[in-house]
């Protein structure tokens, strides 16, 4: 599979909620990459793992991974490689805030019920924030 195909497939898996498979493909891209994009791919590995930990109920692991992901992806905002990185980073930051807020109140069971509400897609920059393609 070509690098671009692999990336598209990984995004698709992420957006379908298959975070583990997405992490695997992003990881392959990260391993093979020898340019500055390496950090971009690792940001998506960590984003996928953060989401995987989130849906698995490992909130501590989720927050750590999301923080690491944001740290890397912020370097590629607002847009990079056709991805609306600004959108992804903003959503990840909101998610971190929400998890940490629930951790403070020790109300993680409520968070577990709301998880689907906080899951967000990786968007291409030709789409607007409502998921429609811009002309």
């Amino acid at each position: 599979m070509e690098e671009s195909e692999k990336f598209v497939k990984a995004v698709e898996q992420f957006n379908n909620g298959d975070f583990f498979s997405a992490h695997d493909l992003f990881e392959e891209l990260w391993i093979d990459c020898r340019t500055h994009e390496k950090e971009f791919f690792q940001g998506f590995v960590q984003l996928s793992v953060g989401m995987f930990h989130l849906v698995s109920g490992n909130f501590k692991g989720a927050v750590s991974q999301l923080h690491k992901s944001v740290e890397k992806l912020e370097k590629f905002t607002p847009k990079f490689s056709e991805i609306d990185v600004f959108y992804v980073v903003s959503k990840a930051k909101t998610l971190i805030f929400e998890i940490e807020d629930f951790q403070k109140t020790d109300d993680l069971k409520s968070l577990q019920k709301l998880i689907t509400h906080y899951i967000f897609p990786i968007k291409y920059h030709k789409e607007n924030h409502y998921g429609d393609k811009d002309n």
């Binding site: 583990f20 992490h23 990881e27 930990h53 490992n58 501590k60 692991g61 750590s64």
Partner: peptide, 11 residues
């Protein structure tokens, strides 16, 4: 190894 590990086995 912290609880962030995803058991990929790379290490």
């Amino acid at each position: 190894i912290t609880e962030e590990c995803i058991n990929c086995g790379a290490c």
